[in-house]
């Protein structure tokens, strides 16, 4: 093999190796770090096993927010058809409101309550997380003429 070809080969091998390492990293990292999204109706139809980390989303049911001892809060997330009680311990985001869209990360406990480790309600009051908008549309509770998802 000429030295020119040898060098090209070495370069190609280095590239391939790096690509393979990258791919291995990606597969390894994706295994445990993909969070599936469930609407309350999804949870009723195909319940996620308790303890598995998932994301849920919907509207915070009006009048459902209860502040307990210390930092704990309880509220209900609904898509109009089904709902799921959520427990969370921590500071709620600035834009958390009853009647507004919300996304929570966490897992179901044995009793059907969702233990949230993180609650997201970003952006302004017109904002609707796309998954939530989609979930509401599917359950038939999306009001036509409501602000488009994601509009600022």
């Amino acid at each position: 093999m000429s030295p020119k070809k040898q060098r090209r080969l070495a370069f190609a091998v280095a590239l391939l190796l790096a690509g393979a390492c990258g791919a291995a990293l990606v597969v390894f990292a994706l295994r445990d770090n993909v969070l599936f999204f469930y609407s309350p109706t999804d949870l009723v139809e195909t319940p996620a096993p308790p303890g598995q980390s998932i994301r849920i989303g919907g509207l915070v049911e009006t009048g459902s927010l209860v502040r307990e001892e210390g930092l704990a809060v309880r509220f209900i997330v609904t898509d109009g058809q089904n709902s799921i009680p959520v427990r969370y311990s921590g500071v709620l985001p600035d834009l958390f409101r009853e009647g507004q869209g919300v996304i929570a990360l966490g897992a179901r406990d044995g009793g059907g309550t969702f233990e949230a480790s993180e609650v997201l309600a970003k952006h302004d009051e017109k904002y609707m997380p796309p998954e939530v908008a989609d979930a509401l549309k599917r359950s038939g509770h999306w009001e036509e003429g409501a602000p488009a998802p994601g509009s600022l």
């Binding site: 990293l25 990292a29 770090n33 993909v34 969070l35 999204f37």
Partner: peptide, 18 residues
Amino acid sequence: GVKISVGPPYFVITFIPL
């Protein structure tokens, strides 16, 4: 039509070793 999110741990696991 599957809605997932790839969380920060994915990026930490892939990015930090490199």
